[in-house]
């Protein structure tokens, strides 16, 4: 425990990342939400966009792209990216399985859910990618669905009132390439596409 568990950033790959044409439109829409001289407000939304666009995680290259887009010093974006836990600073599996283990879920058996996820995905711990490249498991803090505990979030969607059986079913479904419906399914892009 003595050694720090500070997030160490992935090595800079020196990739010259660029927004795609469609992402560029989203960048503009995001920037339109804030006053002209306050484009720094778009830091978090653009990191989100970068995470969605560039493989589910935020590399140093992506941070640099965001900083350049907003004319910010790199360190200011780096600070933000490491402060918020939802930015993955290293690659994750296709499905990022985040199981809530905070009090309400804990009382209703989230520990068992974590075990089941490990078993079904073959993962031994957190933060790594399963051999098939599909899953990464993270135990997370309260996700705000306490009355439907235990629950987990897979990518953007919530899966609630889990039992060991339903959990396995969801994961096996994903393995089989099926669409597994979350509680409030959305295309997930309205946030960037909205007025």
């Amino acid at each position: 425990m003595a050694k720090s568990s500070a997030q160490k950033i992935e090595v800079h790959e020196g990739k010259d990342l660029k927004w795609t044409a469609s992402a560029k439109k989203k960048v503009e829409k995001i920037l339109a939400k804030y006053p002209d001289d306050q484009s720094r407000s778009a830091t978090i939304p653009l990191l989100w966009l970068a995470q969605k666009e560039f493989g589910g995680w935020v590399s140093v290259d992506a941070m640099q792209l965001v900083a350049d887009t907003l004319s910010l010093p790199y360190i200011r974006v780096y600070e933000v990216a490491t402060f918020y836990t939802m930015f993955n600073l290293k690659p994750v599996g296709k499905y990022h399985v985040q199981v809530c283990t905070n009090c309400a879920c804990m009382i209703r058996g989230s520990e068992k859910i974590v075990d089941v996820v490990k078993e079904a995905t073959g993962l031994s711990g957190q933060g790594t990618i399963s051999d098939d490249g599909l899953f990464t498991l993270t135990e997370v803090e309260c996700l705000g669905a306490c009355v439907e505990a235990p629950m987990m979030q897979i990518n953007d969607g919530y899966h609630v009132k889990l039992t060991p059986e339903s959990t396995v079913e969801i994961l096996e479904g994903l393995k089989a390439g099926k669409t597994v419906k979350s509680t409030t399914p959305s295309k997930g892009l309205e946030i960037f596409d909205g007025k």
Partner: peptide
Amino acid sequence: EEMGATGRGENMR
């Protein structure tokens, strides 16, 4: 602007 504090809580660096 090259110095900053990354991470948070007791892991702030």
